[in-house]
Nucleic acid binder design. Structure first.
Length: 525
RNA sequence: GCCAGAGUAGCUCAGGGGUAGAGCAGAGGACUCAUAAGCCUUUGGUCGCAGGUUCAAUUCCUGCCUCUGGCACCA
């Protein structure tokens, strides 16, 4: 059984509708997934929802629904969202699913048995109205709590804790020995700085069921549900476990899930794509949990940044928001996928501007790629009736060099660099048209052979571009293939080898891929 | 406060001890296959401030200023 490349997004908390940040993380993960598949690797891409917790319980009650029904309703929106983005995820995990509950409980039982947990008192200030403990940070400057919390009382609560203390040094060693474990490097430095300058406190992993019923009960103490860490993070191994992953079967022998015909080997995850806000959970708690369970650590934690809009924080209260679905409806899915991966490198924060979106659409998609394909096919149609001439390799070497570079970028999840390099192929082809001037050659019958050569190079470049953009712009890739009248998905980088389009083949009719747009984009809901 | 990182052309950024670079935006030009797209040429910068090392600093060092990120519950 060969191991499948396993990549995940964070699971999103179901307390509303998906926004730009969610869309971004999912698109990035999807592009990496598609690129890996194109490189010839089997890939399993997982995304999903985090459904337990106080907020969901409260929201459900407020709507007069059971928490499960409330989650089911929202889950259908989130699943629809994966379709809108044309994600190629193989599964969609929900933490309220029985398979997830089974895995969480098996892990809790094992760690409890092996002495990783202990009970202890938690003393704190509790707001009955908000049903939450408050911290010193919640105090106002005068030492009182905001009236929104209602009456605040000091409360003592027993809970279970997970011992973290013994794990600090090996984790530091692991991060230092594996430079790619946390990317980008400056995030890695932050985690190392934190681990070296702080002593890890044990982690509170439960809430009393009396206070929070919407959660997974501890298998060894039904008065408690587990809280956040052993619920949400475990989603990453739920699906491998459910698919019969041999490492998980060995680590959790008592786990009882329906047997599968063809077990898949997924764990360890190759990449967890997450937002920078949850880096500590993934780079500190999660590895320690895995080590305690007896499982290998993921290969990489890839932390992306956040989007701003016009240089300011995106916030619902100021109305400074971007609705990804509105943008997609207006500009098309590929334009959206292109903008977020081309504009922002994975890691830093980015700045969404409508003008920037329109500018990239116009310059790079419409005038760059779109116009190249259109003018190339138009000339082939006009001068040769759409019949591909015999093969010529004038642009072969340059293209091959770019393809090789792009393969390297794909392999390292360097999406922005991959796009830049891909567009260098577009640029080169446009220059080639100016240099060879096929429209002049066409006027001179003596130049017919030269015109054939040029037209072949252009048509073949268009075909290769369909392969190179496929992970990013899947719809456009298919449309180029359709205009070339070629079968297939252009979803294997191996197809980017020069000489793939057969001489004598008749291409279809050219149509603008990205129509010119003069209106600013609609980004508000 | 502490720990990182950054301050370079109008914008986004790359670079790096010895005549400052790219893309976009701006200006000019020749062309016409194409979505009036594309191509060529080109205007922009005392490389945050002040010192120091050096024959030579934007590049190394020190200090300062400004900004950003992190310092455990927001994609």
């Amino acid at each position: 059984m060969t191991k499948t490349f396993y990549i995940t997004t964070a699971i999103d908390y179901v307390n509303g509708q998906p926004h730009l940040g969610h869309a971004y993380e999912k698109v990035v993960t999807d592009v990496i997934s598609r690129a890996r598949r194109s490189l010839g690797q089997p890939v399993f891409f997982l995304t999903g929802l985090d459904e337990h917790g106080q907020k969901v319980q409260q929201a459900a009650v407020a709507e007069g629904k059971t928490p499960q029904a409330y989650c089911d309703d929202l889950a259908s929106d989130w699943i629809a969202f994966t379709k809108t983005l044309q994600l190629t995820n193989q599964d969609f995990v929900r933490t309220s699913q029985p398979r997830h509950k089974a895995v969480v409980q098996a892990i809790l039982a094992k760690l409890h048995r092996e002495g990783h947990f202990y009970q202890s008192e938690y003393r704190g200030f509790y707001s009955a109205r908000q049903e939450t403990f408050l911290t010193e940070k919640d105090r106002r400057p005068d030492g009182t709590f905001d009236p929104m919390y209602g009456e605040v009382t000091e409360l003592v609560e027993n809970n279970y804790y997970f011992r973290l203390g013994a794990h600090q040094q090996w984790l530091i060693d692991h991060i230092e020995a594996n430079p790619d474990f946390i990317k980008p490097a400056y995030r890695r430095n932050e985690v190392l700085g934190f681990l070296k300058n702080n002593t890890l406190e044990d982690l509170c992993i439960t809430r009393p069921a009396a206070r929070l019923s919407w959660g997974i009960p501890l298998p060894f103490d039904p008065d408690y549900v587990t809280y956040v860490w052993f619920d949400a993070l475990v989603n990453y191994i739920t699906v491998p476990a459910a698919l019969g992953d041999p490492l998980l079967a060995a680590a959790l022998p008592e786990l009882k899930l329906p047997s599968v015909e063809k077990p898949q080997s997924l764990w360890p995850a190759d990449i967890h794509v997450i937002g920078k806000d949850i880096l500590k959970f993934h780079a500190v708690y999660w590895p320690i949990m895995l080590k305690a369970i007896g499982l290998p650590l993921p290969g990489q934690i890839l932390a992306h940044g956040w989007w701003q809009k016009d240089g300011e924080k995106i916030s619902k209260s100021t109305g400074n928001i971007i609705d990804p679905i509105a943008v997609i409806n207006d500009w098309g899915l590929d334009a959206f996928r292109f903008y977020v991966t081309r504009e922002l490198d994975i890691g830093p924060d980015g700045n969404w501007t409508d003008a920037g979106f329109a500018s990239r659409y116009g310059a790079e998609l419409a005038n760059g790629l779109g116009n190249l394909v259109n003018r190339s096919l138009s000339m082939l149609k006009r001068y040769r009736g759409g019949v591909v001439p015999s093969q010529n390799d004038e642009l072969a070497a340059g293209t091959a060099e770019a393809v090789c570079k792009i393969a390297g970028h794909w392999d390292k999840s360097e999406l922005q660099d991959a796009l830049t390099t891909t567009w260098s192929v577009v640029k080169r082809a446009n220059e080639y048209i100016e240099q060879t001037a096929p429209f002049k050659l066409a006027k001179d019958p003596a130049q017919a052979a030269r015109l054939d050569e040029v037209l072949y190079n252009l048509t073949e470049t268009c075909r290769i571009l369909a392969v190179l953009i496929q992970p990013f712009l899947p719809q456009t890739s298919l449309r180029i293939m359709a205009q070339l009248n070629l079968p297939g998905q252009a979803d294997q980088l191996a197809e980017a080898k020069w000489g793939g389009i057969p001489p004598g083949h008749v291409v279809g009719d050219p149509l603008p891929l990205f129509p010119r747009r003069d209106q600013p984009p609609v980004t508000k809901a």
